[in-house]
Structure formats: structure tokens, C-alpha cells
């Protein structure tokens, strides 16, 4: 009886979570008439795959996809390059001002993005970087959370390994590259996944920092497309599916990493 109730609750909750997304898929395959029919269509009579082609004709959707890939990809790469290196330094090196710098780093966790939004816009306008890839990418090249995560992960690696390599005459960068980095692989996977998904979904900065359709990322391009063609819901839905598919695929193939990653964020 209790067990049945729990199953019921979980099933209802799961349906509430998943059905809207399935409806989005259905909507993306409906004819315009079906999206407006007095009785809502749940399963389209014949799937209109042509909607996806029409979307690319009405908006530079190919550009949106390339922009999203470039921006989210570059930022993810930068995190994977810098976060473990900086985390390693804070985990294993002693140097003057170490604690001061670490506190200054963690303090940036308290700074929400909207605080940086206006000055970053002014800075980018000054540099002529509005509506450019460098303008979209540079504000997110590193973040304190990724560095903190890597530091926590690197700290338990025995110091003896590092000393032994130093005695063998390995250069400091070789120690990082050959000894530390290979051991951080699980943490890097979590870091890479989360960074990519968050940047792929990012909305506010690409909205502020782009001025022409050709430079927009998918979330922004799609939202502004919807404002322009607000009755063409089947096309907006098709764009939403395109935006969702990469994260859904990443999630399905690496569900464990996501769950572990979220749990890690809570273990502070």
C-alpha cells in the first residue's frame, strides 16, 4: 500500500517533468493548422519533418548552432585547461599571499552575473568586442567553482609522488601534465560536462552582447525568433528540440557524472 503510493507519486512527478518535453517534440512535428486546432493535437497525423528545414529558411539557425558550439566549446576547453592548473597550485604549492589569493578567488563566488553585466558590456563596447566571439567567451573563461572543485580533488594526491618526480628531475609543468592531470580525469569529466551544458544554455550575456541575428547563440536566437514569429509555435518547438538534443544526449550517456557532479556541489 505505502509502496504503491510511492510509485504513484514518483510516476506522476516523472510525467509532469517529461510530458511537456515530449509535447515540445510533438509540436515541432505538427502542421501550423494542427498547432491552432480547437482540439489540441497530441500526436501529429503525419510528422512534419519539413518544419526543421523551414526554421533554417526563416532564421539563420545554422549560424545559431555554430555560435553556440564555438562559444560553449571554447569556454569548456578553457575551463579544462585552466581550472585544474590553478586548483593544483592552490592544493600543492606554498607561496606568499596564498591564502589571500585563495580568499579573493572564493569571494568571486558571491558575485552574481548581473553585477558584472553592465560593466562588462561597457568594457566590451570599449574594446569593440560587442557582437564578437571573444566578447561572448572571455567573461566565462574560468570560474572559482571549477578551480575549487579541482583543488579539492587534487589535495588528496600524495605529496611524495610530486617530490619523487622532482628528484627525478621532472620539470614543474611536466609534473602537472604527467602526474597530476591524469589522476583528475573523473573530476575533469564532471567539470567539462557541467561547463558545457551551462554555457550551451546561457541566456543573459549572449542576449546583451550580440546585436545581429548572425552572432546569436541558440537560446537567444530562438527566443527572439519567437518574438518575431510568435504564432509559429511549431517552428519555435523545432528550434527548442534542436537546443535540447545535445544536452539530452550528453545526459543519457553520462547520467552518473551529472548526479555525482550535483552531489559534489552540495558537499561544501
Amino acid at each position: 500500500m505505502r509502496r504503491a503510493l510511492i510509485y504513484l507519486m514518483l510516476t506522476v512527478a516523472s510525467l509532469v517533468m517529461v510530458l511537456p518535453l515530449l509535447y515540445m517534440l510533438s509540436l515541432s512535428l505538427q502542421t501550423e493548422a494542427e498547432t491552432l486546432a480547437a482540439e489540441a493535437v497530441i500526436v501529429p497525423e503525419s510528422p512534419q519533418w519539413g518544419n526543421y528545414a523551414e526554421l533554417f529558411e526563416r532564421a539563420p539557425f545554422g549560424d545559431f548552432i555554430v555560435n553556440s558550439l564555438v562559444v560553449a566549446g571554447a569556454i569548456t576547453l578553457a575551463h579544462l585547461l585552466f581550472d585544474p592548473l590553478v586548483g593544483y597550485v592552490f592544493a600543492k604549492f606554498r607561496f606568499p599571499l596564498r591564502n589571500t589569493l585563495f580568499v579573493a578567488l572564493l569571494a568571486t563566488l558571491m558575485v552574481p552575473f548581473f553585477v558584472r553585466m553592465i560593466p562588462l558590456y561597457v568594457l566590451m563596447a570599449h574594446l569593440g568586442w560587442i557582437n564578437t566571439y571573444q566578447g561572448l567567451i572571455t567573461p566565462f573563461l574560468m570560474d572559482a567553482f571549477g578551480i575549487f572543485l579541482m583543488r579539492q580533488f587534487i589535495q588528496p594526491i600524495p605529496d611524495d609522488l610530486i617530490s619523487a618526480a622532482r628528484i627525478d628531475g621532472a620539470s614543474e609543468f611536466a609534473i602537472y601534465r604527467r602526474i597530476i592531470l591524469p589522476q583528475t580525469r573523473p573530476a575533469l569529466a564532471v567539470l567539462g560536462l557541467f561547463t558545457f551544458v551551462f554555457q550551451w544554455n546561457e541566456f543573459l550575456w549572449p542576449l546583451v552582447a550580440t546585436t545581429t541575428p548572425e552572432m546569436r547563440t541558440i537560446p537567444v536566437g530562438l527566443t527572439l525568433f519567437n518574438q518575431e514569429y510568435f504564432t509559429l509555435w511549431h517552428l519555435t518547438a523545432a528550434g527548442s528540440v534542436i537546443l535540447f538534443v545535445p544536452t539530452a544526449v550528453l545526459f543519457i550517456v553520462s547520467q552518473r557524472y551529472f548526479v555525482r557532479g550535483i552531489a559534489l556541489t552540495g558537499l561544501r
Partner: peptide, 12 residues
């Protein structure tokens, strides 16, 4: 299934 919406963009 419960976690899926967390992965969607605010745009979606």
C-alpha cells in the same frame, strides 16, 4: 526523468 528539466535552457 525527474532530473531532465534541469538540463534545459531557460529559453526552452
Amino acid at each position: 526523468m525527474l532530473l531532465v528539466p534541469y538540463l534545459t535552457s531557460v529559453a526552452i
